[in-house]
Design a protein around this nucleic acid. Structure first.
Length: 493
RNA sequence: AGGGAUGUAGCGCAGCCCGGUAGCGCAUCUGGUUUGGGACCAGAGGGUCGCAGGUUCGAAUCCUGUCAUCCCUACCA
């Protein structure tokens, strides 16, 4: 077999690619920067989506859908927003093709030029605020809490499966509020939703914090983010929420009459999103040389049962299958998804490797020998250990095991992050540590110039100013100027 | 956008220097033997050699043009 995957230690980028392609999550497409998400990968995304959607609704949001195509003029209404996205927009200029008179297939019909060009949404703030203008008149229309699940396009120079593609799937929440306080609360609340999701479902710990001015979303007053640490030592922004202030309300003239009357006010806005990039985060957080490691709560198949079917002994095979079905039915009743592999053309060793590559959390193996001894072999994906379990106790055992795996990989990821998060006070050490990878807590004088200089010298950026960082006076790592707080540095994806 | 490289079967490649009508591994299909950690044997199918021109009796190979992709430098959820 040549299908083995590249060792992580050998080439982590290749390893990542191998997992995505050979693990059956996605494929390259013929369009540069665009990927095909395959059924197995999409099943994981759907599980993420279902849980996030549930959380959004639980916090009072409803779903809607806004158009893919946005009039070009909308984008220019909010100055910093245009600046942020103009360089990576796909533009629709024509609406018709025609047969090439020279017989070379079809060509763009030059007569079908659009009067106003349309851009394919890189994000939907503009078209949404242009719509909200008509929906909001009074404080009674507020808060407006809407989410949309959609695809967006950002024309990227360098792409990487799931982590950075020209088109990606995401959700974007867009809310309108009467007061600044309420909008900020919303921004914080949704960041919390993301952080909880990452911890509880993805088993991935994240740091929460505020972006510096230079890393802020184009058009926001404040950008909050969650930052996770990947196994290559680089940080990954896993989600963001923005307090947009009145920027978009002013740009699109969205005003409301406050309670008690008086003068009309511009509404306060937020937006927040996570994308299929989370798939990349999931892979880069837990997986290793045997393949993917999926947290049970997101695994499309949580348990695979492999009976050693005996071609020459159909009677034993029937018993093995009956036992497998019995276990499957019992586990299904507990809401656990189970697949029985009845394929007789592949050998067990191949199947073991295959399900490890795909990250199935628990594998049960039953052969004739086990049937005689009333045992079942249980293998867990996260630490690759195997044990023999009494058949009577298998259901409880598996249920407990899935919880263990979920908790264990979280703990592992947490330990990794703890080991790779350093507090540093000297420039020499800082440079050394950034080179080694991981997060670094260090003092910063608060200026954009220093931030830029540090990036230039070390390729490290300020990932965020953490929320839970206590005030502690110190000296900036680069300039030695006064600093009130440490910030979180890392090289980022 | 600047520098380097590569386009040959689904995938990974050889062949090109020195022109003679396309090959290897994996995958696929058929038959058989296997099955407690990626099985083996036998056979089969699959190609406008990126595209367009040119040189030549003859081009994957030489020449010209063109398109595409990948890697290294500047911007990004």
């Amino acid at each position: 077999m040549s299908d083995f995957i590249t060792k992580r230690s050998e080439d982590i980028n290749k390893w990542y690619n191998d997992l995505v392609i050979k693990g059956g999550l996605a494929d390259y497409s013929d369009v540069r920067g665009c990927m095909v998400i395959k059924p197995y990968g999409y099943a994981i995304w759907e599980k993420m989506k279902d849980e996030l959607d549930r959380k959004f609704k639980e916090t009072g949001h409803v779903n809607a859908y806004f158009p893919l195509l946005i009039p070009k003029s909308y984008l220019s209404k909010e100055a910093s927003h245009v600046e942020g996205f103009a360089k990576e927009c796909a533009v629709v200029t024509h609406y018709r093709l025609k047969n090439d008179p020279d017989g070379n297939g079809v060509i763009v019909d030059p007569e079908a030029k659009l009067e106003e060009e349309l851009i394919i949404r890189p994000t939907s703030e503009t078209i949404i605020w242009n719509t909200y203008k008509n929906w909001i008149q009074s404080y009674r229309d507020l808060p407006l809490l809407i989410n949309q699940w959609a695809n967006v396009v950002r024309w990227e120079m360098r792409t990487k499966l799931f982590l950075r593609t020209a088109e990606f799937l995401w959700q974007e929440g867009h809310t309108a509020h009467a007061t600044k306080l309420e909008a900020i609360e919303e921004t914080e609340k949704m960041l919390g939703v993301y952080a909880d999701f990452c911890a509880d479902f993805m088993s991935m710990p994240v740091y929460k914090g505020v972006k510096t001015a230079s890393e802020r979303f184009a058009g926001a007053e404040d950008t909050y983010c969650i930052e996770a640490l990947m196994q290559d030592g680089k940080a990954l922004q896993a989600g963001t929420s923005h307090f947009l202030g009145q920027n978009f309300a002013k740009a699109f003239d969205v005003r409301f009459m406050p309670e008690g009357g008086g003068k009309e006010e511009f509404v306060r806005a937020t937006s927040w999103g996570v994308s299929t990039r989370l798939m990349g985060a999931l892979i880069l957080t837990h997986s290793h040389d045997h393949g993917l490691v999926l947290p049970p709560k997101l695994a499309p198949t949580q348990v695979v049962i492999i009976p050693f079917l005996q071609a020459k002994n159909p009677e034993v095979s029937a018993q093995l299958l009956a036992k497998s079905e019995e276990i499957k039915t019992a586990l299904n009743k507990l809401g656990i998804s189970v697949q029985i592999d009845k394929d007789e053309t592949k050998r067990p060793g191949f199947k073991f490797a295959e399900y490890e590559l795909k990250g199935v959390p628990v594998r049960l193996v039953i052969g004739p020998r086990d049937l005689e001894n009333n045992l079942i072999e249980v293998a867990r994906r996260d630490n690759l250990t195997k044990e023999l379990v009494q058949a009577e106790t298998i259901i409880e055992h598996v249920q407990k095991l899935l919880e263990d795996v979920q908790a264990n990989i979280y703990q592992k990821a947490m330990n990794y992050r703890t080991e790779h998060t350093k507090t540093i006070d000297t420039w020499e050490e800082f440079q050394k540590q950034i080179e080694l990878g991981g997060f670094v807590y260090a003092h910063w004088d608060g200026t954009a110039e220093t931030e830029e200089k540090i990036k230039e010298l070390t390729k490290a950026t300020i990932r965020c100013i953490p929320f839970d960082m206590e005030i502690s006076a110190g000296k900036c790592i680069l300039t030695g100027n006064d600093s009130q707080k440490r910030v979180l540095f890392a090289r980022a994806h």
